[in-house]
Every structure is written in C-alpha cells, then in structure tokens.
C-alpha cells in the first residue's frame, strides 16, 4: 500500500472460464451530445427537469453494464475531478443545471479511489450556492465495477 491509490497499479484480469454469453447487440442509452462538463450547455433541452448523471470519466469503463444500469433514462455530464482544469467552471455549470435547467435529481458516480470523491464535493458546493435545492445521490464503484456504496448525500 504505497503511493497514490488512484494511480497505483492493480491486476484483476479475469480467468477465461465462466465467460458469459455476449452474443447479440445492445443499443446505446446515450441520448445527447456533447457530454464533457466543459462542453455541455445547461440550456440544452435534454437537461430540463431531467434526472442527471454526473459521472467521473473512469466509471463507464469500470461498470460492466453502465448503459443499462446507470445511463438509461438519464441525461449525462462527465469530468475528472483529479486531472481536469477549470474545476470552478464545473461548479458554475452544475449550479446552472440546478437553477436554470431545474434538474430533478443529480446522481454522482465516482470510483473508489480517494481523489474521485472530489466530484461529489464539487456537486455539493454547486448545490450550496444554488437557489434551488435538489436531492443528490452518490454511487461509488470499486475498481472491479461493483457498487461499493450508494447513498443520498443531500
């Protein structure tokens, strides 16, 4: 256990046995573009009164069924709380989603690594500065894509 847990190497390659049947195609549940937090506009129609998913970049790669289990039925914005520049603008964007787009709920999905919790903090800061109040849920995934915790934070 040394170094930053967010960038420490771990190997959890699966053994070949027990592979699931992956035949057939699955449709994408993405219903908008763009999705990166710097690029999105809170004025876009798909954010109005929506249930919004604010996802850390790595989440979609970790969750085996990201589209089916989390993205379906939601509008999305993504960002990395550790590496992205301009996190202040993220606060403003999320605040505008709450106040201007009048979103219904915000679900923040992050990875288990400690630095990722910054995205929840950003969302909470935006909520504090917003005029409206909405429920925010935090879902944290393990590196293997399982749900580590799921709770309403405000």
């Amino acid at each position: 256990m040394d170094g930053c847990p967010g960038s420490r190497m771990q190997d959890f390659r699966k053994k070949p046995e027990g592979a699931h049947d992956e035949s057939g195609k699955r449709a994408s549940q993405l219903a908008q573009w763009p999705i990166q937090l710097h690029l999105i506009s809170p004025m876009a129609p798909y954010y109005q009164k929506a249930d919004v998913l604010l996802s850390a970049d790595c989440v979609a790669y970790a969750a085996g069924d990201f589209h089916k289990d989390y993205l379906k039925g939601k509008s999305i914005a993504i960002g990395c709380p550790k590496l992205d520049e301009g996190q202040d603008e993220y606060v403003e964007k999320i605040k505008s989603l709450i106040d201007d787009a009048k979103i219904n709920t915000l679900t923040v999905m992050t990875m288990q690594v400690p630095c990722c919790a910054g995205l929840v903090a950003t969302a909470e800061e935006a909520l504090r500065s917003a005029k409206r109040k909405i429920p925010i849920k935090s879902i944290v995934l393990t590196l293997q894509g399982d749900v580590l915790s799921e709770e309403w934070v405000s």
Binding site: D51, N104, T105, T107, K133, I134, P135, K137
Partner: peptide
C-alpha cells in the same frame, strides 16, 4: 425510483 425521489422533494418544497 430516483425520479420519484426528486418529484417528492419538489412537491414537499
């Protein structure tokens, strides 16, 4: 559902 939680919250407000 998450959507219902948001709806309830707004209605209570």
């Amino acid at each position: 559902s998450v959507t219902q939680v948001g709806g309830l919250f707004a209605k209570f407000n």
